[in-house]
């Protein structure tokens, strides 16, 4: 196994543990916003979509990359906005 792959697997494993630890103590009130917020985080795949769009030629791979960027952006923008809308209701009334 090569260096970068091995390091990637270490990062993956450790991040899984961090995720388990962070979420296991969440109060039920926050389950919906948490799901929607974490869902927005999974839109991080937009980074991969940007890398995929490496040519200016209208090739199949470039068109697929545009689709990937669009899907990921829906997830990111929509996800963070909708989570903020929910959380504003939770905190903003005192």
């Amino acid at each position: 196994m090569t260096g970068p792959l091995l390091l990637g697997l270490y990062a993956f494993l450790l991040a899984c543990f961090v995720g388990f630890e962070l979420i296991s103590k969440v109060p039920p009130t926050l389950h919906t916003p948490l799901m929607s917020g974490a869902n927005a985080i999974s839109g991080i795949t937009i980074v991969g979509a940007l890398v995929a769009a490496k040519t200016t030629e209208p090739t199949v791979s470039a068109i697929l990359a545009v689709a990937a960027i669009a899907f990921a952006t829906i997830n990111v923008i929509g996800g963070f906005l909708v989570t903020d809308r929910m959380l504003r209701m939770f905190g903003g009334k005192k």
Binding site: P4, L7, G8, A11, F12, L13, A15, C16, F17, V18, G19, F20, L22, I23, S24, H31, L34, M35, A38, N39, I41, S42, I44, T45, V47, G48, V51, A52
Partner: peptide, 20 residues
């Protein structure tokens, strides 16, 4: 794509979903 931020954020979301 060999991007560590993507690996880490994805793994955390994966773990969070399993807990829920």
């Amino acid at each position: 794509v060999g991007n560590p931020a993507l690996i880490i954020a994805g793994a955390m979301v994966g773990a969070a979903g399993l807990i829920l």
